[in-house]
């Protein structure tokens, strides 16, 4: 056999031996990305999260039809809002916030180039308001979720737009379940899932189940961490109280409101609601007042 072929055969043998020796070690090594089921995780590692945030912002850019501040503008004016205040877009936006945006991140032109350049990029504040237009933000939310499945906000925002504006309840539920699988302790996702059951599926039983589960998750995590997201707790308690009121379980509704009063910034308003419910719950004789002896 000629020498080069012999050498080649020898090198193949060495490579094969090394591979059989290293493979078990690599399989058991904690730092191996290959263990991940996701191709993106294998390829990108932790840099996925950076990219996921970029795509989340991209969804916001699309919501504004490209009218969006650059990092230079954000230094002075702050960032817009879609991802953080999703419920504001239900046709009842906060007027101060809106007025602030209308004046815009774009300050008056500083020079002729600045003035001229504004013809060539979106320079008017706008939202995707035509029916169905909101679908355009979905690809970026989907990609953001694929890149960083642990960002629960992505699932909440996407589910909101899917069910509220695009009438895609099945897809919203499926996406939220996907998010729940990736984040089993997320009370935020459970809250959104409860809304799907309550508002879209007309299934108060399942809504109650997931909200109550969400409440338990919140309390479990509250016990572990000093700071918690009271906003979701308030929302969950409110929804549960409303559900129980609708279902006629007034004492349970009152108990949820009592809990809500402890975290709400408006305890007096909650107390009024509690009083109302207590009045409804009281027997008619109690309403009339005590009889004279």
């Amino acid at each position: 056999m000629p020498a080069p072929s012999l050498l080649f055969g020898l090198l193949c043998s060495v490579c094969f031996t090394l591979a059989t020796w290293l493979q078990p070690w690599h399989q058991s090594w904690a730092g191996s990305r290959a263990q991940s089921g996701s191709l993106l995780n294998v390829v990108m590692g932790d840099s996925r999260q950076l990219l996921a945030n970029h795509f989340l912002v991209k969804a916001d850019v699309y919501f504004h039809s490209g009218y969006y501040p650059s990092i230079f503008d954000q230094v002075t004016r702050g960032a817009p809002h879609m991802a953080t205040a999703k419920d504001d877009h239900d046709g009842k936006e906060d007027h101060d916030h809106e007025a602030n945006e209308e004046s815009g991140f774009l300050q008056p032109p500083r020079d002729w180039i600045d003035r001229f350049s504004r013809h060539f990029y979106p320079s008017r504040h706008t939202h995707l308001e035509k029916p169905g237009e909101a679908r355009e933000i979905l690809p970026w939310l989907r990609i953001a979720a694929d890149l960083d499945p642990h960002n629960v906000g992505t699932y909440s925002v996407a589910a909101y737009w899917l069910r509220q504006h695009l009438n895609k309840v099945d897809e919203a539920e499926q996406f939220l379940r996907e998010g729940w699988r990736a984040n089993p302790d997320s009370y935020e996702i459970l809250f959104e899932l409860g809304r799907v059951f309550d508002e879209n599926r007309n299934d108060p039983e399942r809504a109650r189940n997931v909200w109550e589960l969400g409440l338990r998750k919140w309390h479990e995590q509250s016990a572990r961490h000093a700071r918690q997201d009271n906003f979701v707790l308030e929302q969950t308690l409110t929804q549960l109280a409303r559900l129980e009121e609708r279902e006629g379980n007034l004492p349970k509704a009152v108990s949820y409101l009592e809990e809500l009063k402890t975290v709400s910034p408006l305890p007096d308003t909650i107390q009024l609601q509690i009083n109302e419910l207590k009045q409804k719950a009281a027997p008619p004789s109690a309403v009339k007042g005590p009889k004279s002896p």
């Binding site: 039809s65 490209g66 060539f120 990029y121 979106p122």
Partner: peptide, 27 residues
């Protein structure tokens, strides 16, 4: 800023992608 050619002026991708109206022809 004033000396360099502002190539970004010619990048109207955002307008096309988001279906904005065409630019004024004089501009």
């Amino acid at each position: 800023y004033f000396a360099l050619p502002h190539l970004e002026l010619f990048d109207v991708r955002d307008l096309v992608v988001h279906n904005w109206d065409p630019i004024n022809w004089l501009v």
